[in-house]
Design a protein around this nucleic acid. Structure first.
Length: 640
DNA sequence: TTAGGGTTAG
């Protein structure tokens, strides 16, 4: 084959500066990350004049990049032989320190640091040397070592700088980050863009409270210091911690005058799409997809961005679009598969989820814990008891995966829903770790479906120990008592809630129309069209009532579903949202509603009946899955 | 010529 001019060597020959000595060319190649060529040139270059001044530091860095540990040792030995160490050649010393640190030979890095003459070495060289080792410790996940070296640095009266902090801040335990932050502020470094960005992303690891701290750092940054990374970091801080509304609001601000003309990049969009998916913000997600297709035409090569789009579509009701994106991807990761598997699971297509999973495995991708959660929950939503149990029991032998709390939650849900309450209870007893609120909550939900107050009480006892402030579980227990006619139980749970100051999270549903979000709460009259909406709901209620068999009983009920305030005409939010959709959209189009809680049995049978009467399709995403109502039936087959 | 900040799935 004829070498094309685009091959690395030929390209280098083409752009090489031939007036530059070959040792300087080594440096250039290292800078261009063409490490193999750099080392080849070092090996074959003219040995006189000696290459040490320019070539050796670069060669050490190239060795580290290629994990050539012995290469670094050889350069080190050569330097020692030539008398360039300990500190005669500061650059070579720095390069060796960096190389040893990057490759994880930290004892050697420490040794070099120890050998440095503190008095005669320039201060900046000392600082770089300490920074190299601290960064190396951070790179190799040795946070305690970072601080040990940092203390030595301070004991030696070497001033730290922004680079030191970029390694140190993420290495600090979350509880100690504010102290490092204060240290940075006292040194006048906390306002530097790189340091502030680093603080934002580190605080972001600390849940909702951390997101608030991250937000404060961002808000305190001078406008001129905020760059794209600052916006991305603060946006992700909210997106990662479930604060989707704030993340979307930040994105709007970024695009407005506050953004200072910063254009989003793929990283921004990944974060925003995740929040759109979480929040059901379909309009914004669609806008972003348009932006991606117009402005980032090579997006198909960006696996994370494609994954974010797949996840968005799968969770926002457009499975065909998610599937198309998946099919178009040039390279896929396990995340791509998981997003799609989870999406099919949420829509009740357990069979498709299972076959996707099998296809993934046959393509040589080993499932991870998250993929298994997606698969097991897909089985659970579809009532695929045998498959779910089989996959769960072979997790360890087939895929070397230890079941986590989330897998147990899926399995308790799967067994419980299928009516195997005792089996679910036994599974909890057999767990190698203590069950958490979610596991017991899954059992409680199953007890609601199967009206088992006794086992429900046991689950509830555990839950109020583990999650005493989660009102949803109290409502669930109270509903079990209602269903089993134990009114004293209902009163007891209500008293507990009152004494503890707990209020049920209000149910809300929303629908997007012509670029606007229309939000409804139960019995909410604030919408401008409220009068027409209520009239329509009442009319539909009457039509449903008159339709024989329209409101059958026996639908599976369970989980933290909303309770109808009035059994006959409960103006739950999803009814209002669907009525708004019927009044404002054209016949034939699908009405998509996003809801925060689970659909109650009453609304479920109402929506089924109305889909038949009005000959319209409603797609409702509730807290755990999608329901597609059409022609009088629901895609969940009343199993939810 | 040396040290370096942000991202996805349940």
């Amino acid at each position: 084959m004829v070498a094309e001019p685009s091959t690395p060597a030929a390209a280098f020959a083409g752009d090489a500066n031939f007036t530059e000595p070959w040792s300087a060319q080594v440096r250039t190649l290292t800078r261009l990350r063409r490490h193999r060529e750099a080392l080849a040139l070092l090996r074959h270059g003219d040995p006189s004049p000696p290459p040490h001044a320019l070539a050796l530091p670069s060669a050490a860095i190239s060795c580290a990049a290629l994990s050539l540990s012995s290469g670094i040792s050889q350069i080190h030995a050569l330097a020692a032989k030539r008398g360039l160490l300990p500190a005669a050649d500061a650059y070579l010393l720095s390069a060796l320190l960096t190389s040893y640190s990057r490759i994880g030979r930290l004892p050697l890095a420490h040794q070099l640091l120890d050998e440095m003459p503190l008095e005669s070495t320039p201060h900046t060289t000392l600082r770089t040397a300490f920074n190299s080792v601290i960064s190396g410790c951070a790179l190799h996940a040795l946070p305690a070592a970072c601080f040990t070296v940092f203390r030595r640095m301070r004991a030696a009266s070497v001033r730290f700088d922004a680079v030191t902090l970029l390694a140190l801040v993420p290495a600090a335990p979350l509880s100690a980050v504010p102290q490092v932050h204060a240290l940075a502020a006292r040194a006048g470094l906390a306002a530097e863009t790189s340091v502030a960005n680093c603080l934002i992303s580190t605080y972001a690891r600390g849940g909702a409270a951390g997101a608030a701290l991250a937000r404060r750092v961002f808000d305190e940054m001078p406008l001129a210091s905020r760059d794209l990374v600052s916006w991305n970091a603060v946006l992700s801080a909210h997106a990662q911690n479930g604060l989707a509304v704030d993340a979307l609001e930040l994105y709007r601000r970024m695009r407005g005058p506050d953004g200072g003309g910063v254009e989003p990049d793929a990283v921004t969009l990944v974060g925003v799409l995740s929040s759109c998916a979480h929040q059901g913000a379909r309009g914004m997600g669609f806008d972003i997809e348009r932006y991606v297709r117009e402005r980032l035409p090579s997006f198909r090569t960006n696996v994370q961005l494609c994954n974010a789009l797949i996840n968005f579509h799968a969770r926002c009701g457009s499975l065909p679009r998610a599937q198309r994106l998946f099919d178009e991807m040039l390279r896929r990761s396990i995340v791509s598969w998981t997003a799609l598997i989870t999406g099919y699971g949420m829509h009740g297509h357990g069979d498709i989820a299972v076959s996707l999973f099998e296809r993934m495995v046959s393509e040589g991708i080993r499932p991870d814990n998250v993929a298994m959660v997606g698969l097991l929950s897909a089985c659970s939503h579809a009532g695929m008891y045998d498959e779910g149990r089989r996959y769960f029991s072979t997790m360890e032998s087939a895929y070397k995966l230890q079941p986590t709390l989330e897998h147990y939650t899926c399995m308790v849900d799967l067994l419980g829903r299928a009516g195997r309450l005792e089996e679910a209870r036994e599974l909890i007893s057999s767990m190698p770790m203590p069950a958490d609120g979610a596991v017991w909550g899954a059992l409680l939900g199953a007890c609601k479906i199967h009206r088992n107050a006794e086992l429900g009480e046991e689950a509830f006892e555990h839950i109020i120990e583990l999650e005493p402030r989660n009102a949803g579980y109290y409502v669930l227990m109270s509903n079990i008592y209602t269903d089993t006619g134990q009114l004293d139980g209902v009163a007891r749970v209500r008293t507990m809630m009152r004494e503890r100051g707990l209020k049920k999270e209000p149910g809300c549903s929303y629908i997007e129309h012509k670029g606007r979000v229309h939000l409804f709460m139960a019995d909410d009259h604030s919408h401008p069209q409220a009068k027409r909406i209520y009239e329509l709901v009442i009319r539909l209620e009457q039509m449903v009532k008159e339709k024989p068999g329209a409101r059958e009983s026996g639908a599976a009920e369970g989980g933290e579903k909303e309770v109808a305030v009035q059994p006959l005409i409960g103006f739950h939010s999803e009814k209002l949202a669907v009525a708004f959709g019927l009044l404002n959209t054209e016949a034939g189009s699908e009405i998509v509603v996003i809801k925060n809680l689970r659909v109650c049995g009453d609304c479920h049978s109402f929506l089924k009946a109305v889909s038949g009467i009005a000959n319209r399709a409603f797609l409702v995403r509730d807290a755990s899955r999608f329901h597609r109502f059409k022609g009088g039936v629901c895609s969940c087959k009343d199993y939810w």
